[in-house]
Nucleic acid binder design. Sequence first.
DNA 1: TTGAAAGCGCTAACAT
DNA 2: ATGTTAGCGCTTTCAA
Lengths: 346, 346
Amino acid sequence: MPRSRASSQDRSGPRRRATITDVAEAAGVAASTVSRAFTRPDRVNHRTREHVLAVADELGYAPNPAARALESGRTNTLALLVPDISNPYFSGVIKGAERAAAAAGMVLVLGDTQENPATEEQLVRRLGPAVDGFVLSASRLPDDELLRAAELNPIALVNRATPGVACVVADFDSGTRQIVDHLASLGHRSLVFLGGPPESWSGARRWFGLQAAAEAAGLTATRSGPYSPTLGGGPAAADAVLAAKATAVVAHNDMLAIGVMLRLAERGVSVPGDVSVVGFDNIVGSDFCSPTLTTLAERTEDAGARAVEAVVAQTVARSSEPPTRVLPTQLVVRRSTGPAPVRSTA
Amino acid sequence: MPRSRASSQDRSGPRRRATITDVAEAAGVAASTVSRAFTRPDRVNHRTREHVLAVADELGYAPNPAARALESGRTNTLALLVPDISNPYFSGVIKGAERAAAAAGMVLVLGDTQENPATEEQLVRRLGPAVDGFVLSASRLPDDELLRAAELNPIALVNRATPGVACVVADFDSGTRQIVDHLASLGHRSLVFLGGPPESWSGARRWFGLQAAAEAAGLTATRSGPYSPTLGGGPAAADAVLAAKATAVVAHNDMLAIGVMLRLAERGVSVPGDVSVVGFDNIVGSDFCSPTLTTLAERTEDAGARAVEAVVAQTVARSSEPPTRVLPTQLVVRRSTGPAPVRSTA
DNA sequence: TTGAAAGCGCTAACAT
DNA sequence: ATGTTAGCGCTTTCAA
């Protein structure tokens, strides 16, 4: 049987991995005993177990997860899909998910959907049989696809809500209220929202919340955009801000907010003297840009962790009513917001 | 045989995944034909193939990777281990690795070693049988462990060199020369290196290169630290800089450099008026901190991609002499460096 | 071109 | 407490 294995005579090729049978032979026991020694330590004689484990260690044996998965149908692997791994915003989600996955004894597979629904769909399909569940962060999939995927695999969403699918979302209602109240208390009478990608669920929630909060506080809220949620989106957004003679702007996210401030500085506009700027995300960098950025902080690590927990829970027992968790948000006030400038047209 | 499968009557539980047998039955062919339809399209009648694929699609069938892996010994999965996923420096490596892995038809598993050699070792051991190879970025494992691991799995290192293991490293010799020449051309006569973690291979290379380049250029180089390679390391490092009356400092990385500048600003010291500051990494943020940071850019995405390619190459054929690739570095000059201040003690 | 059968490494029933 | 056996889903001989 000329199977494609590493022939044992290559100079430095990977040594053939020890299998459970190798260990069994070397230890003079049956394979099932070796298996038990690893998985049900209490169901095997203490001394046998010691011996088996010693032999296994000597042979460098580690159970083959593929074989285990085949038998049990469980892979002990979770997949986390994000739109853009290099976006610092997702670092927190990733970190939290990693931690929770490790705590649950699971391995995390990371996927980058490149902001592309087709890529995301493909990853879900391809990874599906290889994982026990998915965490989809800022998913771009339409509701019906999400539902379909959720039939085959446990799924939890982060910052995206779809009825029937577990999700963890930031409390944008409270968050936008905090932002508006903060601006109102500084004397601002109106704000401009600089929108991000039209497909962004959280973008929609942010704008919705801002409108409601503005109305409640007696401010006028208008929307501009869409702009790229990156530093590169800054110039166009900043120019629009100046044209609109806004005294306060709320950007889709911190990257855009920082890009805006860069451009405003270039054009000789003072922040917060002339314009106050607020972002979303509280990314690394919002604390050292110039001026430092007032922004709404989400608990991204918690979000990642909670989502993993939700998926793990589903792998154990599917509940009929998938939970929705709302995580608190908190406005971090820094130097980019200040009193509304006094206008001649008061 | 009461195997633990999802019983088909749970309300909304995961539907049982279609297997190759299901498809075979539904299509009225043998399982082996279905298998061939997917893996050797040319070895099956055109019409049969169409039919089989149609049925498979209808059933939502996707081959089970675990079963494939069991048979072939290949998982089509690569693992990338980094010390800290949330460090923006690694985003580039991750991104590049993702891209190269996808191009090679492989899935990438990401692991966070938490800057901990023990965690790293554990991950390598646990993931070993589940993956076709490893990319170890900034590995903290001692040489002998690396060698041992390399016997069982193809491995490529990023910014770490160990004889006998494939690696991709940045050209720190050239990079440090660029830094020193830049400072020398601005009239600086000495520099202080703010060191990072003592175990860091690239940290050692940086300091080594700086010394050599300084000597060649007739500058004095001294070292200070170690400091935490984070914003939080800034204050201590900055205070040391002032105590040393340095005119130019080179920080272990950008995060530390930015932390230093923050503290210097706090203490009323002008950058670059009084002190010039240089970093390593060119992270996102080095372009919008204040002042913007002069830093040595590495080609991190390329590094990740090259490393993946090196691993993939090894999975095909192990070469006796694992390759070392040196990637160019480039100094990005921004506002944090300027002419050396004129000192009374000239 | 297709089907039948064996086996990848492991775990779980069942027997001892 | 331990061994024997069957089978997870798939690919791959080997026959037809």
